[in-house]
Simulated scan of single mutants.
Amino acid sequence: MTQIISKLADISDRYEALFVDLWGCVHNGVTAYPDAVAALQAYRARGGIVVLLTNSPKPRAGVAEQLVDFNVPADAYDTIATSGDSARAAMFQGAIGKKIYFMGQWERDEGFFEPLNILEEPIRITLAPLTEAEGIACCGPFDPMANPNVNRADFLFAKQKGLKLLCANPDIVVDRGDVREWCAGELARLYSEMGGDSLYFGKPHPPIYDLARRRLSALGQSIPDSAILAIGDGVQTDICGAMAEDIDSLFISGGLAAKETQTAFNPDKIALENFLQKEKYSPQYAIGQLR
Results as ranks from 00 to 15, higher is better:
G255T: 01
R124S: 08
F113R: 02
V51P: 02
I239D: 02
Y281C: 08
N169M: 09
G196P: 02
T131Y: 10
D69Q: 14
P148N: 08
L119W: 05
L229P: 04
G202D: 06
R14G: 10
P224D: 12
S56P: 01
I223L: 05
D246I: 00
T82P: 05
M1I: 06
A146W: 07
A146Y: 07
E121T: 08
L156S: 05
S226G: 06
L216T: 03
D109H: 15
S217H: 14
A158M: 01
P57D: 05
I247R: 04
P73L: 10
E193Y: 15
I172W: 15
G94S: 09
T263L: 06
V235A: 12
R215A: 09
P283R: 06
A264W: 10
F92Q: 08
G255V: 01
I270T: 14
D268R: 04
P204E: 11
E279S: 11
T79R: 05
K269E: 15
E132C: 06
I49W: 12
A90Y: 13
L40V: 01
L165P: 02
P206S: 04
Y209I: 00
G162S: 09
G111H: 11
L219W: 03
F155I: 00
K259H: 09
M1P: 09
L166F: 05
D171R: 10
L8H: 02
Y43L: 05
Q289K: 15
G135E: 04
M1G: 02
T131G: 03
K99Y: 07
D109K: 06
G196V: 09
L18E: 03
R88C: 01
L219R: 07
R124L: 05
V63E: 08
A258H: 11
E132N: 13
Y33Q: 01
G24N: 01
L165C: 13
A137E: 10
D233W: 06
G24H: 02
A184M: 04
I125T: 11
A271E: 10
Y77S: 01
D225A: 12
I270Y: 11
T82Q: 08
D246S: 15
N147M: 13
A227H: 14
L116M: 13
R46V: 06
G234T: 06
W23M: 00
G94T: 00
E114Y: 11
M103S: 08
L272N: 02
T261M: 11
G84L: 01
E134W: 12
I49D: 05
L187P: 09
E279F: 02
I125K: 02
V150E: 11
S83E: 09
A45Y: 03
G255F: 04
R14F: 12
A257W: 14
P122L: 01
I49M: 09
F201T: 00
I125A: 05
N274K: 14
I239K: 03
L216N: 04
E114G: 00
P73F: 12
L8C: 02
G111E: 04
Y200P: 01
Y191F: 15
A242Y: 06
E110V: 11
A258S: 07
A38T: 07
E186F: 05
V20K: 03
V173H: 15
D35P: 01
V20T: 13
R46E: 13
L52K: 07
M103A: 03
P283G: 07
N55R: 05
E279T: 08
L67A: 07
A9R: 11
L199F: 06
I49Q: 13
Q277I: 00
